[in-house]
Design a protein around this nucleic acid. Structure first.
Length: 479
RNA sequence: UCCUCCUUAGCUCAGUUGGUUAGAGCAUCUGACUGUUAAUCAGAGGGUCCUAGGUUCAAGUCCUAGAGGGGGAGCCA
């Protein structure tokens, strides 16, 4: 007889049937009630034993974190907290857990700080919070593939090792086969990359976008979903050295199509979590409510986690141009009272404090800002007719900041070449990219979504290190 | 990288103007109880006060440096 997943047991209520459950003990109360979790759901099944009939030595081993196999009959619960429970006939200890050892871990049955949990990333999956987070992370992964597949997009695997360094997206990790204690040098003392594995400098990718564009210009609609690396020395709750990014790219789309796609996509993901992860979401929602109430009133989010997801799913995003944003900011109270640390002036990039004002004070909803000055954006973004701005867009989320960055791409060969010159990019470095503008070039657009930032939004976690199983940050690559 | 705060028991923390033997709650263990839901009651064990220097009759407490962590900023997704 096969064992049944707890999720299935709780949903089907096959009362009266013989069942086998395998899982880990979360709590053992009154020498009678074993709370078992197997990861299939945040909910535990209660296994009830008549301790009078069991060997003392076995009872002793039913301790927090131990793995057990329980045979019994599913019955209606006599107690309140659950509708069904298992009347146990037999317990097998599959893996013991020494209480003295367990006590030193995050499995100790009490509240823990997220910092302590982070130190034990190998064990934090056992907690309700991280169980919920990583089930939802999976749900989002699946929803992303489903969204694009249903729309006729093709998933494109762009390279992780790349020799292109023209995107200016950030510092890159170098990849080499050299013996680092004995690096071949040329006559003038520089590193002799001709002797390296790829015969040239190679890095971990910072974005698959340029390659995705090439795919889109034949397959029509593509998206990438893969790991991305930044060697920036960023020590914040919103940055990782290794993170996952989704980058759709669509031929014949302009900036407006791009905004529509982004908005539909983010609404879809929010809805998907609401509809498919209600139990996990409820747990994280309660957690978030407690967290919010502990904060001073001015820092509190007026909406609960679930309300925030519903808000995104059901409300239009506010769309404004960069020029309008500057206008609004210069007329704002904090600007007039000189409360902003950084100046607001056309041509200067918006800082966190400005973005936060627009999203959290002025509009109180997700905001899409478009048409930024060309100088502060990447070389591949399409030049607008005014000659000063480009068809770029940033999507700003409350509490997260920039969650999506995208643009219509420069499809005109001559303009692209001029942009390369302006940005000091050697055309030889990106010859293959420029080449694509010679053969049936068409308008196209795309965006990048930082996956972990979406997981943060969907789970209410406020530190990005708590939404990826094993975070990589400056000075930290454990596990 | 910058600013700022923190580091005391397994965890979360308290520790007065520098002063005797460093405390609490939870967790663990032992016993009692037993249809519990963060079980309850009684008791016990548990300390490199982050590290290295320094000031002082005396340092968990003051000073210097370092390490680790949190929050914010910059950079960005």
């Amino acid at each position: 007889m096969k064992h049944t997943k707890i999720k299935a047991l709780l949903e089907s209520s096959q009362v009266g049937e013989k069942v086998i459950v395998k899982g880990w003990v979360r709590a053992f109360r009154s020498n009678r009630f074993i709370q078992i979790n197997d990861g299939s759901t945040i909910n535990n099944i209660q296994a009830v034993i008549e301790y009078e009939n069991f060997d003392e030595a076995i009872l002793k081993k039913i301790s927090t974190a131990a793995a057990v196999e329980v045979h019994g009959t599913l019955i209606e619960s006599q107690g309140k907290g659950q509708s069904v429970e298992i009347a146990v006939e037999n317990v097998h200890i599959l893996g013991e857990a020494n209480p003295d050892e367990v006590q030193k871990t995050v499995m100790q049955p009490k509240k823990h700080s997220l910092e302590f949990l982070r130190e034990q990333a190998h064990l934090r999956f056992r907690t309700n919070t991280f169980g919920a987070v990583f089930r939802i992370r999976h749900g989002l992964t699946f929803a992303i593939h489903k969204f694009f597949n249903d729309k006729g997009f093709y998933n494109l695997h762009t390279p992780i090792l790349t020799s292109s360094d023209a995107e200016g997206a950030g510092e890159m990790f170098h990849v080499t086969n050299f013996d680092l204690n004995n690096i071949p040098k040329t006559e003038d003392g520089k590193v002799d990359y001709s002797q390296d594995f790829f015969n040239k400098p190679v890095n971990l990718t910072v974005s698959g976008q340029l390659e995705a564009e090439l795919g889109a210009l034949a397959l029509g609609q593509v998206y990438t979903f893969g790991p991305t690396f930044r060697a920036e020395n960023s020590n914040t709750s919103r940055h990782l050295a290794e993170f996952w990014m989704i980058e759709p790219e669509v031929a014949f789309n302009d900036l407006k199509d791009n905004m529509d796609l982004t908005e539909e996509f983010l609404k879809y993901l929010s809805n998907y979590v609401l509809e498919n992860y209600a139990d996990d979401l409820k747990f994280l929602n309660d957690r978030d409510v407690k967290e919010q109430s502990a904060k001073p009133a001015k820092d509190r989010n007026p909406l609960t986690l679930i309300e925030r997801l519903e808000f995104v799913a059901n409300n239009e995003f506010k769309r404004i141009t960069y020029t309008e944003a500057i206008e609004i900011l210069r007329n704002s109270k904090p600007f007039k009272k000189k409360k902003f640390k950084y100046d607001v002036e056309w041509g200067v990039d918006l800082h966190s404090e400005h973005e936060r004002y627009l999203v959290e004070k002025e509009f109180n909803c997700p905001v899409i800002i478009t048409d930024y000055p060309a100088d502060i954006k990447a070389f591949y973004m399409r030049q607008n007719d005014d000659g000063k701005t480009v068809a770029a867009m940033d999507v700003l989320f409350p509490g997260i900041g920039e969650i999506v960055g995208g643009s219509q791409r420069e499809e005109r060969l001559d303009v692209l070449k001029k942009k390369c010159a302006d940005f000091n990019i050697d055309e030889k470095e990106v010859w293959w990219y420029i080449d694509s503008r010679k053969f049936g070039t068409v308008p196209h657009a795309g965006f990048g979504l930082g996956f972990e930032r979406m997981v943060m939004f969907a789970t209410g976690m406020t530190n990005i290190r708590d939404v990826i199983p094993f975070p990589r940050t400056p000075g930290n690559a454990d596990f």
